[in-house]
Simulated scan of single mutants.
Amino acid sequence: MKKLFLAAAMLLSVSAFSFAQTKASSGQTQTTQHTKKDGTPDKRYKENKTAKDTVVHAKKDGTPDKRYKENKKN
């Protein structure tokens, strides 16, 4: 009787652990952001960049540099 009870308890505990370790369902999206040590977003990664962060080519006096395509007028 002890062996039967022990086997049932082991089976129950193993099955409980296997159900507790399931991964997130596919309907949930994970959004992880790469951050620096101080907690600010790391701009080296694409998901942390915004349109504002793009490089604007300008001269030292602040005027647009016409050597670059995005600064030329059509």
Rank of each mutant, 00 (worst) to 15 (best):
K69P: 01
N74F: 08
N71C: 06
T22K: 10
K49W: 00
A58P: 00
L6Y: 10
K72N: 05
L11C: 15
A24W: 08
K59I: 00
S26N: 11
K66N: 01
Y68G: 07
N71W: 02
K43C: 01
A16F: 09
S18G: 11
F19G: 15
R44L: 09
V14C: 13
Y68A: 07
A58E: 14
V56T: 10
M10W: 09
D38H: 02
N48L: 04
E47F: 01
V55T: 14
F5V: 15
K46W: 04
D42E: 08
P41S: 07
V14M: 10
G62T: 00
F17H: 11
D65M: 03
K43A: 01
T40A: 04
A7M: 11
K72A: 07
D42W: 06
T29W: 01
S25G: 15
D61H: 02
Y68W: 14
Q28A: 12
D38K: 03
V14L: 14
K66R: 05
A20Y: 12
L12Y: 11
Q33F: 10
V55I: 11
A7G: 10
K52L: 07
Y68I: 02
K46N: 06
T50R: 08
E47K: 07
V55R: 00
D38A: 04
Q33P: 00
S26C: 09
T31D: 12
K2A: 08
K60M: 06
K37G: 13
A20W: 10
R67W: 01
N48F: 07
N74Y: 10
F19V: 12
H57N: 05
G39I: 01
T31N: 14
D53G: 05
T40N: 05
A16K: 02
K73E: 12
P41M: 03
V14R: 04
G62Y: 01
K3V: 08
T32R: 06
K69Q: 10
L12C: 15
K23D: 15
K73R: 08
L11K: 04
Y68V: 05
K36G: 03
K43H: 03
Q28T: 13
K36F: 06
K69L: 09
S13K: 00
R67S: 08
V14T: 13
K73Q: 11
A16W: 06
K36T: 13
S13Q: 09
S18V: 13
K49L: 08
G62D: 03
L6T: 12
K23M: 12
T54H: 02
N48K: 03
P41D: 07
K69A: 15
T31F: 08
K60T: 05
L6N: 13
D38L: 08
V56Q: 11
A24P: 14
K72D: 00
T50G: 02
K46P: 06
T63Y: 05
A24F: 13
A24D: 14
